[in-house]
């Protein structure tokens, strides 16, 4: 039987350290004018129910464990969409002292959706892109493979680790400025979707 998860992907949204601009646009994309629900998208508050994780805003020392926890609670196949430029790379706040960088400093990201603020059309576009990755993961899993070999997780560098005191342990990462650049992860570039396409 050809049943696909991507026919009705449930999404969960978490606001990293976004300015709200992207959050309200993510919500707006679900309301009747843009109507992401026509693709079967349902917004849920429970990580265990969700297939796609929409993260807005960059990560900092305090919300990094929260983002990781939500991600870990989600079941495979799952997909992460970084909504907005702050979630992709840190955006205008990249140089602020309490910003570690994009969401890929915490968890592997499958789709990078830019914009400040992100437009609802881009959100829908990103969700549809993520559906493709969900399907691939599902195919790989049915064949007994590892879902982590598909999408952003395949090329992820591991992000940053928090020290015991809650501060960022990696050298230079605490400054926020160096976190994105020093690791050599081109956070702003849509490297992961490209990799996903190659895998196809």
């Amino acid at each position: 039987m050809d049943h696909k998860m991507s026919r009705s992907p449930w999404v969960i949204h978490y606001d990293g350290s976004s300015c709200n601009g992207c959050d309200i646009e993510v919500l707006a994309s679900l309301t009747p004018l843009f109507d992401a629900e026509r693709f079967g998208v349902v917004n849920t508050g429970n990580p265990k129910h969700a297939d796609i994780f929409l993260v807005t805003g960059s990560v900092n020392a305090q919300n990094l464990p929260v983002v990781r926890q939500i991600y870990n609670q989600m079941l495979e196949p799952k997909c992460v969409v970084a909504c907005g430029i702050c979630a992709c790379s840190g955006g205008v706040f990249r140089d602020a002292y309490n910003v570690i960088g994009g969401v890929d400093r915490a968890i592997p990201v499958d789709v990078y959706a830019p914009g400040c603020a992100i437009r609802p059309e881009t959100v829908i576009d990103a969700i549809v892109e993520a559906c493709g990755i969900l399907d691939q993961k599902e195919t790989v899993m049915r064949a007994g493979g590892d879902p982590l070999t598909v999408g952003g997780a395949a090329t992820w560098d591991g992000g940053v680790e928090l020290g015991e005191d809650g501060f960022v342990a990696a050298a230079g990462a605490g400054a926020g400025v160096d976190a994105g650049t020093a690791d050599g992860a081109p956070a702003g570039k849509p490297a992961a979707p490209a990799a996903a396409k190659e895998a196809e």
Binding site: G16, S17, S58, N60, Q62, N63, F93, A96, N98, V99
Partner: peptide, 9 residues
């Protein structure tokens, strides 16, 4: 959770 420190920017 959302503190960015933009006053310092």
């Amino acid at each position: 959770f959302v503190h960015r420190g933009l006053e310092k920017l």
